[in-house]
């Protein structure tokens, strides 16, 4: 997995991902994704292309439990989010829908700039900033999350195996 970085700050909350103006107007992910990050920075959506890796500060995704937040981020083509920390519901939701969420060190994130090329190896737990020529390890997911992620989320896993990961353990 390799992509160009869009850099965000600390505490990017779920209302920033989808503004209050839209979140109760429709449940359609494609429609909602047109307004992604609008209240944070109206120009942000133009910078995101297929493969973009979001690199953010601490507590990414805090706030609502609404899964629409990670879903619209996946919908616009973001391939992974790397942050100093995540809010727990967002983290769970991202795993369930197969959107990689990685915790990296403060120094790695602070030294990474917008537009840098970053690559990720989820299985080995390696993140590399190719532009800055720096690399670090992160703790790979526990095995049962790892298989969910490999299959692109828990729904895809279930459709392939006809069972949830815990059913087969």
């Amino acid at each position: 997995m390799r992509g160009k970085v869009v850099k965000l700050g600390d505490h990017v909350n779920t209302d920033f991902v989808i503004s209050g103006k839209y979140k109760f107007k429709t449940q359609d992910i494609k429609e909602l994704s047109k307004h992604i990050f609008e209240d944070l920075d109206p120009t942000l959506s133009q910078k995101i292309t297929v493969g973009t890796i979001i690199v953010a500060g601490k507590n990414f995704g805090y706030g609502s439990s609404r899964e629409h937040a990670p879903r619209v981020i996946k919908e616009v083509g973001v391939s992974a989010i790397v942050a100093k920390s995540f809010a727990r519901i967002f983290f769970r939701n991202a795993i369930n829908i197969g959107l990689p969420v990685i915790v990296a060190s403060e120094s790695f994130i602070d030294s990474t700039d917008e537009g840098d090329k970053v690559s990720l190896d989820l299985e080995k737990g390696i993140i590399r900033n190719e532009t800055k020529n720096m690399e670090e390890n992160f703790k790979p997911y526990p095995s049962f999350i790892s298989v969910v992620m490999r299959e692109g989320g828990i729904v895809s896993y279930f459709r392939k195996y006809g069972a949830f990961p815990w059913d087969t353990r």
């Binding site: 439990s65 609404r66 990670p70 519901i89 769970r92 939701n93 369930n96």
Partner: peptide
């Protein structure tokens, strides 16, 4: 008691 997303 804990909050989850729609998939969970």
């Amino acid at each position: 008691a804990t909050g989850v997303g729609s998939t969970d």
